[in-house]
């Protein structure tokens, strides 16, 4: 039986894992390579890392970090943040990423999703979508939540699926950072219609939240601070889910 994936997410600047609320009060949580290795060895099913400050200067160090991480883990690695063209995707895959996630660039030039999945295969193209509630709809937002687009979430998700996305990583801006659980309503609105896998992101604070995330038919559950802070280990989460009857890799 296919297992629900537990995916720690590393927000990275250069080679440091950071935590920041809306890019303010950025706090260093640890060394990215050490943390990646730790998660790989303690039961993470996949690892996600995002370059949250993808400036030209920081990029080189970030790519080197991806290379170092790929060398010390043997689980799949998804890398995103600042991906704006085909060469960014190729560079990350060459550095050792198994999947690359595209966010704002997909909205600006959807053709990138199509081209990337034709060149590299759908299986390594993740479209990351950030969304929030606006006037009774879920709307796609870009630039880390600063710009609300006119796109409705469900239409956009179906569109990128048609373009060749292999997976969708959905972050709810309404629940992200609040630690009161994934946005079940938002997640269900797309898992009900899509045929590709969905990774839930944004809002985990308690063990129960992972279970509720699983119930949305998301096949991957992503979390950051509950793991980085040491509040829960991946094993604890998996044991909890296993007891609830959710298939997990133990």
């Amino acid at each position: 039986m296919l297992k629900t994936r537990i995916i720690p997410c590393l927000d990275v600047i250069k080679n440091k894992v950071v935590k920041g609320v809306n890019f303010k009060n950025i706090k260093v949580m640890g060394n990215a390579i050490e943390m990646a290795k730790f998660y790989s060895e303690t039961g993470a099913d996949e690892l996600c890392m995002l370059d949250i400050n993808a400036s030209y200067q920081n990029r080189k160090t970030f790519i080197k970090t991806v290379e170092s991480i790929a060398k010390v883990i043997n689980i799949p690695l998804t890398v995103g943040g600042g991906v704006s063209d085909l060469s960014d995707i190729t560079n990350l895959l060459n550095a050792g990423a198994d999947k690359v996630s595209i966010n704002s660039a997909a909205v600006k030039k959807p053709n990138l999703v199509k081209k990337a999945s034709l060149v590299h295969g759908s299986q390594c193209i993740v479209v990351a979508i950030d969304a929030k509630r606006l006037k009774g709809n879920f709307r796609v937002v870009i630039k880390g939540g600063r710009e609300v687009t006119t796109k409705k979430l469900i239409n956009w998700a179906l569109f990128v699926q048609r373009l060749g996305a292999g997976e969708i990583l959905l972050t709810s801006m309404d629940t992200d950072g609040v630690q009161e659980g994934f946005d079940a309503e938002m997640l269900r609105s797309i898992t009900a219609k899509l045929t590709i896998p969905v990774i839930a992101s944004g809002g985990v604070g308690k063990l129960e939240h992972f279970y509720k995330g699983h119930q949305t038919k998301s096949t991957g559950l992503l979390a950051a601070s509950v793991f980085h802070s040491g509040k829960y280990t991946i094993k604890q989460v998996k044991r909890f889910l296993d007891k609830k009857g959710v298939p997990v890799r133990i």
């Binding site: 296919l2 099913d45 299986q123 292999g166």
Partner: peptide, 11 residues
């Protein structure tokens, strides 16, 4: 009704 690709850990 099968999610495709089959992606993740399976036994």
């Amino acid at each position: 009704n099968l999610i495709i690709p089959h992606m993740g850990w399976n036994s």
